[in-house]
């Protein structure tokens, strides 16, 4: 499973949505509010076995940034 696929799966679960597109961002996705954002961060930390810094969590404003951040961390 690629990082993209894994992130999409976690987002679907956290936001409780059947489908989510790779265009998703805090601006265009209603469920992606500040509370769900933290849950998302927490789930990503567990799934990829990493620690996200508060600054990094703040930067994860859309799907592509999340993937880019994780790609850099996981390496």
């Amino acid at each position: 499973m690629t990082i993209e696929e894994k992130v999409l799966e976690i987002m679907r679960e956290v936001f409780d949505m059947d489908e989510i597109s790779t265009d998703a961002s805090q601006k265009n996705c209603e469920r992606w509010d500040s509370l769900h954002h933290l849950t998302l961060a927490s789930e990503l930390e567990d799934a990829f076995d990493i620690e996200l810094e508060p600054e990094e969590i703040a930067e994860m404003t859309d799907f592509s940034r999340v993937v880019a951040l994780l790609a850099a961390k996981v390496k």
């Binding site: 500040s34 849950t39 567990d46």
Partner: peptide, 16 residues
């Protein structure tokens, strides 16, 4: 503490 300072939740959200 990270999550507390980000969002006012002392109880670790990972225990949810």
């Amino acid at each position: 503490w990270k999550y507390y300072l980000l969002s006012q939740t002392l109880l670790n959200p990972k225990l949810a």
